[in-house]
Design a protein around this nucleic acid. Structure first.
Lengths: 185, 185, 185, 185
DNA sequence: AATGAATGAGAGTTCATTCAT
DNA sequence: TATGAATGAACTCTCATTCAT
């Protein structure tokens, strides 16, 4: 709790990890401050309030995914199978190794019925997520079918993450990844 | 808040609806007491604390499903297609018409990483849920394949509920139901 | 801060004294709780929030005055001069001996421009206050003139209280009382 | 909040308006900084702390009045009636048109019982205020009577401002002005 | 002078829980 | 059993103020 200079992005990253693993309601501003090694009031220098912090976290994570893993899905210089495999590798690292599952999946069920702004931001993420899968599948299917498969993929991943979380067993997620891989011809 | 004789089961039902729609952390004992028309302290006559209340709620809902909708899935006196359709009708009523999605799905992502007891109770529910689907599918497939499809079904339903919640659009759930129906030959 | 049973009216009385002497913004719920010998949270058992507490305090003081000193002003069984003198005695006790001036005067300048509800409650008090004076003066003047004098009286009292407060000198208030006494023929 | 060169007098003027309309306790250093378009910490270059700022504001306003409106009251080159009328015009502009009433009246009831320094500064203002009226009335009455009327005038003005504030009705102030005008023969 | 970050106390409020009646 | 009051910790957020740059 010493006098530490803290960076806005560092707060976002730390808050992200807490919100992802503990949930939004169950994470206090004190939790965030302590994890940052900063006084609670310092957080309010960067963010208007807890709600705003959460919104910024959501946007930040979304942006990170957009410019990295989701972007790669669309990169036609790489073989489709390889692209899928690369994404799954990232997802397994985030969702399984780091534990706590998918940030968006977790918070969507907790917050989307309470807070319209959150829901809209989460929606934007899922729309991008689905669109990226669709882009990949479009290389093999027509637009409509590609979209159907993309939705199915996201749905499968999120559903499997839930079961993996409950059963503390990665195999659900791994199986979901396998199934999605089979969408490619 | 008046002097109302309240029944233990009524508390469970009311608490269930609150936990389902608002989440566990976001529902206070005051919320429950108010919704029950009872003083907060009265709740502590029936339940040791909030955690216990939640556990009892989980068991209660599980039992209700077990003795009703899940039971029916196994009833060979009724045509398999009809059984599925009946279940989906119930699910749509609970998940969509009453809004707020699936209690177990919602709370599993919120609480299962925080509270081992909750997770184990939720696990038992999903095990029963999957087993009931498996029982149905066993009438057409071998045991292993039936289990695979059962897991897929539950996964699809929960994944689709998440998307329906985020997009405020029932079609994801309806499509999931359609897909599962197609598992039957 | 021990386990003390506290009475709602006691809270109102204690809060009244604090708000009167320290002002509304400058009196914290902790101040009130400490003065009551009660935990802060206990106050919220009786009052929704600080604003509500203040509103209830205003109503309570108004009612007290209405049923006591203001009522006596209208009592025709007593000689007019005596009635005025009795009121002034009470005012001097409250405003001067107990120090801190007039609750309504003090809070009206502090809060009436910020909070519409407060202002309306304060307005009701002053309307009653003026009406009581008017009732007395009506025994000697026509209605319109009685009202004019009543307003003048209240205005004089409040203005003199301000000067008495600033100069720490009772004579302003005493002079105001003398002037009002001269309104009677 | 941008990098603005701010002038000490500008801060005083802005702080004055805030303290006058919102009250001392209810105006934060942040409020002042925001209204000035300056960082909070910049204020501490000009003023030791909030208390000092307030003291300087009081002195500044007092000085302004002293060298302007109060000074004019004593100017025998102008007809007494005209002088009074000029003052009232200024008072109406400040108290009514700009809303929020009289700075000194407002803060005297809020702060004079809490802070001795404030009270003494406010006292000095009222002493000057009364003396100016006295100077005018001395042209028609002996010293003692002139002082009595001067006090009455200030008292009336402040009392009427309170009622005008509570009733959101200028007529109290206007009537007070009319009454004072009648002190002149 | 001025910035922008940090401080630490304290504001109002809500929480789960306990206890005397 | 049920009530209504009290508890004490924790919550979100704001305050006046300080400090390194």
């Amino acid at each position: 709790m010493a006098s530490k200079k803290i960076d806005r992005n560092t707060i976002l990253e730390i808050a992200y990890q807490l919100f992802r693993t503990k949930g939004y309601s169950n994470t206090s501003m004190s939790d965030v401050a302590n994890a940052c090694g900063v006084f609670k009031s310092a957080l309010y220098h960067y963010f208007l309030n807890k709600e705003t912090l959460m919104q910024e976290v959501i946007k930040w994570v979304h942006n990170l995914a957009k410019n990295d893993s989701l972007k790669k899905l669309r990169n036609k210089d790489i073989e489709p199978y390889k692209r899928l495999e690369d994404l799954f590798k990232v997802l397994r690292r985030i969702h399984i190794e780091e534990e706590g599952g998918c940030f968006f999946g977790n918070i969507s069920l907790e917050t989307s019925s309470q807070n319209k702004t959150f829901r809209n931001l989460i929606k934007k993420y899922f729309t991008d997520y689905i669109a990226s899968f669709q882009s990949l599948f479009s290389e093999f299917y027509n637009s409509k079918e590609a979209k159907r498969l993309a939705i199915k993929a996201v749905q499968d991943i999120e559903g499997s993450l839930m079961l993996s979380r409950v059963y503390q067993d990665d195999s659900f997620v791994r199986n979901a990844h396998d199934q999605i891989r089979d969408y490619l011809p």
